[in-house]
Design a binder for these strands. Sequence first.
DNA 1: ATGTCCCAACTTTTGGGA
Length: 251
Amino acid sequence: MKIATWNVNSLTARWPRVAEWLETTATDVVLVQETKQTDAKFPLADLAALGYESAHYGQGQWNGVAIFSRVGLDDVVTGLGADEEARCIRATCGGIRVYSCYVPNGRSLDNPHYTYKLGWLGDLRAELAERDPAQPVVVGGDFNVALRDDDVYDVTKFEGATHVSAPERDAIDAILDTGLTDLARATHPVGAQYTWWDYREGAFRRGWGLRIDYLFADALTAQRVASVEVDREARKGEKPSDHAPVVVTLN
DNA sequence: ATGTCCCAACTTTTGGGA
């Protein structure tokens, strides 16, 4: 079974690329962020024609998360705590409780949005800490945090910025401390595994990336991992998202 | 180069967000 997380930066703008990617890769479960569309615009019928059940928690202009699955999709839950923005959806697909998370950006260390980000990560940790340990879980999404310095192309350019601050990294570590494994880093302990490159300055071509999109799984599911790869091809070509999908293959 | 892309709107250009 293949499970992917992908921030598509508008499912409306990205639909041709997403549809082609689904047909080409035959991924079983896709955890989608930043649909940037209302539920009315969500391509439910087009996904069904491609063989996918789907659930969308849409907001409109901003945010929006979804799950596509061709291995079942049950018990959908949306939202997180008192959050008023469409940033979290979970469902059970192929026996695994899967999460699609779009963590607030934070904007800057002195911005109220940064406090919102840390609180949001705390709420996610609280939910995951209370989960049934016998239930397999995969938590995916755009976390807007680079966990380690080697998850940043040049960490000196991020001094005083969000995405690399100690409180943000600590908040992600606290989520992992509930018994989850960072699948890409477990599979590739050393070196760059970037998932996002700015559209500006030819960042992708220059290798100026960050690893901010993650797949986290419980220990038993982590033991099933055959491979974890960033699909950099999806970042190339016509009208790409600024994020590449991260894909795990489970035995 | 404060360099791109995407969305909304009192829409044909600007502002907000990432």
